[in-house]
């Protein structure tokens, strides 16, 4: 099967800054593809180039068989996008916003009514159809934008940080809607986020940092690369504990970060007992967990996702 999106040697340079440095990837039909990276990684820049809104400095992009440089209108017809920032007309009602979208995308006149109803049902906004958007809460606006992006049955739906600025409950709801969509419509989805838990719903994740894709795979494979479990340990004297672990215990990758010793081990069961037996320093905190995408990010960049370079 041919990929719906294929990106080759894509590069974007702003005056001095290389925002996107020669990235390559493909997205299969029906896939949820996640772009994960810290602020300024180049996620929005990449999405904007794919969506014809920003001219690439170099490279080629094909969507649904169309060339983004040469067949802009064909590409525009094939995609729906929820931009990182709000792009609704707040002075108009929900219905007016949706109707305008139908007209922009030439949805057949006799289908408009039914489709508007359909997308409003998906995002639970049927009752607010005649209300002005300025009276909506942040979460309702976001849902309306998602509904609007679906009106013309796009092949690919782009979601640039769809849950930014929303409370955890609303975020969870929004993802339910998005997953419902994937099940019902089989739409290919391309999403960006810097919330790690959100990236987990993707079939595949590309981890982006400083304009480069540093890893690309399914979340479980990425976490699998790290192997086994993670033990987080605090003691009364971390420095000394670190030495002891180094001297006496084999087969663990050890690092110290922010008063916590991180041990990457193949199986926590064996290690825990040996650690407790060998360490002579009192343990103040002990935590065992499976690796998250944050650990993956940490492993690739040496930083946590929220941290900047300087810290």
């Amino acid at each position: 099967m041919a990929p719906v999106i294929s990106v080759h040697d894509l590069r974007k340079t702003y005056k001095k800054l290389d925002a996107v440095k020669s990235i390559n990837f493909e997205v299969e039909e029906g896939e949820i593809f996640g772009f994960l990276g810290p602020n300024g990684a180049g996620k929005s820049t990449t999405i904007n180039m794919i969506c014809t809104m920003l001219a690439p400095s170099e490279g080629s992009i094909m969507i649904n068989g169309f060339d983004v440089k040469k067949q802009k209108n064909k590409v525009r017809e094939s995609i729906g996008i929820i931009f990182q920032e709000n792009t609704l007309d707040e002075k108009l009602t929900a219905n007016e916003n949706l109707m305008l979208h139908c007209r922009f995308y030439q949805v057949p006149k006799d289908k408009r009514e039914q489709r508007i109803q359909e997308v409003l049902e998906i995002v639970d906004l049927v009752g607010q159809r005649k209300d002005r958007v300025e009276t909506f809460s942040g979460g309702m606006k976001r849902r309306l934008e998602i509904a609007r992006g679906l009106l013309h049955y796009p092949k690919v739906l782009f979601l640039d940080e769809p849950t930014v600025g929303l409370d955890p409950q609303t975020r969870a709801h929004l993802w339910e809607y998005i997953l419902k969509l994937k099940e019902k419509e089989g739409i290919t989805m391309f999403l960006t986020t810097h919330y790690l838990d959100e990236a987990e719903i993707s079939d595949r994740v590309a981890i982006m940092d400083q304009g480069e894709i540093i890893a690309i795979d399914s979340p479980s494979a990425l976490k699998g690369q790290l192997g086994g479990d993670i033990i987080e340990l605090s003691t009364e004297d971390n420095q000394k504990a670190l030495e002891e672990i180094h001297d006496k215990i084999d087969g663990a990758e050890v690092s110290l970060k922010d008063d916590t010793i991180h041990l990457k081990v193949s199986s926590s069961d064996v290690f825990i007992s040996s650690i407790i037996k060998t360490l002579n320093i009192p343990i103040t905190k002990l935590n065992i967990r499976k690796p998250t995408l944050n650990d993956v990010f940490l492993a690739f960049t040496g930083r946590k996702i929220g941290e900047s370079d300087e810290s």
């Binding site: 969506c51 014809t52 809104m53 209108n73 525009r76 017809e77 995609i79 996008i81 931009f83 920032e85 709000n86 792009t87 609704l88 007309d89 707040e90 979208h101 922009f104 995308y105 030439q106 609007r148």
Partner: peptide
């Protein structure tokens, strides 16, 4: 400023 221009520009209107 309010972002709506993006909705217009990303659509296939000539």
């Amino acid at each position: 400023d309010f972002g709506y221009m993006k909705e217009i520009l990303v659509s296939p209107i000539s």
